[in-house]
């Protein structure tokens, strides 16, 4: 199960080697997410309906976020108000937070990837909910044709690229 990507070590050793830490296996909590909430976004719809085969449905979402801008991660338009951003964050939290999404605790990948997913959402929220950080980010986005991504493919750059995003919050 250990994927061996030669270009970045942080990602494979953290995301796939994590043991199932919590012994609880609560019943399907995603089922509780109310209907309007799910239909509000097609991207997360496929994710939350994933009760029977979580791994199958995770892939599309993770692929979209791998190169996504912070706006895409939060599923808000570029002109979103801070209120929009806050509610998007809470809505996604109720889908992706490991307490909710880590339904199938026997599958170590699902619980650790929901943590990964949620950390990205939180990092995006931290940047976009702070007007100053948001304007800096917007300017950087403008300058590049491609949005800033989570991982680049050069050796040292993979750390810099990776840390750049998570370091925004604090």
């Amino acid at each position: 199960m250990l994927s061996s990507s030669p270009t970045s070590f942080t990602h494979p050793f953290l995301s796939s080697s994590s043991p199932p830490l919590s012994p609880i296996s609560p019943a399907t909590r995603a089922a509780r997410i109310s209907a309007p909430l799910v239909s509000a976004t097609t991207a997360s719809c496929s994710y939350t309906c994933a009760e029977d085969s979580p791994r199958l449905h995770q892939i599309p979402r993770r692929l979209t976020t791998a190169n996504a801008s912070l706006y895409e991660i939060l599923e808000v338009p570029h002109g979103a108000t801070s209120q929009d951003i806050k509610s998007a964050y809470r809505r996604l939290a109720r889908i992706c937070h490991p307490d909710v999404a880590g339904i199938d605790r026997t599958d170590s990948n699902s619980s650790s990837s929901s943590a990964e997913e949620f950390m990205k959402i939180h990092a995006a929220y931290c940047t976009l909910s702070d007007p100053e950080k948001r304007s800096v980010y917007d300017r950087r986005m403008l300058r590049r044709s491609r949005p800033l991504t989570v991982a680049t493919n050069s050796g040292l750059g993979s750390y810099v690229g990776r840390n750049w995003e998570t370091d925004q919050c604090w």
Binding site: I24, S25, P26, A27, T28, R29, A31, R32, S34, A93, R94, H97, D99, V100, I103, H122
Partner: peptide
């Protein structure tokens, strides 16, 4: 109740602590 995966039809347990 929330971590035990209990569902409440009235939404009283649709809660999350970050």
């Amino acid at each position: 109740a929330v971590t035990s995966g209990i569902h409440d039809p009235f939404g009283s347990l649709d809660l999350l602590t970050i």
